[in-house]
Design a protein around this nucleic acid. Sequence first.
DNA 1: CGTACGTTTGATCTTTCTCAATAATGGTGG
DNA 2: CCACCATTATTGAGAAAGATCAAACGTACG
Lengths: 254, 254
Amino acid sequence: MTNAKNPLAPLLANLEVRTPLGEEDRQAILALPYTLKTLEPSTYTVREGDPPDRCGVLVSGFAYRQKLTGDGDRQIIAIHIPGDATDFQNSFLEVADHSVQMLTRGDVAFIPRGAIQEIVRSRAAIAHAILIKILVEASIFREWVLNVGRRNARTRMAHVLCEFALRLEAEGVAGRNGYELPMTQEQLADALGLTPVHVNRVLKGLEADGLIKRSKRNVSFPDWERLRQVGDFNQRYLHLERQSSGQEMRIPQR
Amino acid sequence: MTNAKNPLAPLLANLEVRTPLGEEDRQAILALPYTLKTLEPSTYTVREGDPPDRCGVLVSGFAYRQKLTGDGDRQIIAIHIPGDATDFQNSFLEVADHSVQMLTRGDVAFIPRGAIQEIVRSRAAIAHAILIKILVEASIFREWVLNVGRRNARTRMAHVLCEFALRLEAEGVAGRNGYELPMTQEQLADALGLTPVHVNRVLKGLEADGLIKRSKRNVSFPDWERLRQVGDFNQRYLHLERQSSGQEMRIPQR
DNA sequence: CGTACGTTTGATCTTTCTCAATAATGGTGG
DNA sequence: CCACCATTATTGAGAAAGATCAAACGTACG
């Protein structure tokens, strides 16, 4: 594998979590043009209102999507982990409707918008893989609407902790034992629609009940199953099973 | 226009709001196979957990997406208006991660999953139009996360009232003067992450302040601009401007 | 004209927010 | 390595938005 160091390898791995690709398609992805940049925390990848001309791919590090209310209150809409592309939407829409910022320091490969459009046009399997990625992201948004709209603070928190665990696991970065969570309690609050003070209390509560352990930014889960229950977490919305290529017949159900 | 009565005409109009199509593509859409059914309120179009095999198109009537918590609390994730397709996601994912139900009585044209996949494969412009639709829907989900996560009850309510107005207007069904809102206060509550009681109070508050007028299910807006402000509403996320085809060069910005 | 569903209202309770202060922690320059 | 500064985390006390409970009131329609 001469590709081990290709900065786009994480993107390829990311897409192949759900939609395995053929060798030609894999090479096509790894051959995409890009500009690599190391970005500091809170640097913008996309800014709301900008006409987007490129798509960022997280080679390393974490990022988040956010929107602001008129009063300046922030809501974090999604967290992105290494391998995620942050701007597929922006490769097809005319204006960014929200911003993406780095959560940690990290390397981002910027692929020109035109190159994304071109590969989608010329390679059906890749178009399909990207579409699936977009649809799964939308599914996560839906779950977040539910999470923020209908669950209490403790459940909400447990739920996102579970979500991150499974997403990191799928990416092979970490797992449901625990991981390094690179978010401040304030950021967590903005992701959950809570205040930092309350996030702190909820975290302490979960810890007191033996559902999580914390040291610095590291969280671990002594009893995954119980956490899953407390978080009302069902992984279906992550669509982690392999998706059919869309070319093949579905097996008739009975 | 011999197509005036084609049940798929609303779908075509819906897609062409953002992505005008050529004559061949238009005919291809109108020629899609479908089964037409009249559904009563609360009938399911898709059910969470089902392996989806078709895509519903609202010919007339309204529908909503919903998810439930483990406790049975409901969150409405989106409202769909005539012309909307309710299941593009399901044409590409293996399992429905949420349910769609009729809000009102209405006619739904069910298009087989395979036909959607086929038209997307064979007609680039249609694939593009559907992709844009999917992306705009995702954008609306993001706005809802913000709405439910960071805005107070009154602002939340005003915001969705504005959103519906503009979406109905784009579809040519109604406008920002007012419209028939076919939702009970309980459904509104489930869409906003509130209780029905509080929704009632918020509505009365908005009415008392002259921001809305109500009679039965009809709402009208005596002062759109003020409602817009109260609702912290900025239509950018609806992406109502025409989208470029993705084939053409973007005009350089300055 | 009675039943079911939706709306409205009042009274009270809870979760979460706000405000304010104190304690850790991490990184920096010397 | 140490003192210092800026974040971030933690804690307490009081306030508020919205939830809950309970009941009455409308209205559509069979």
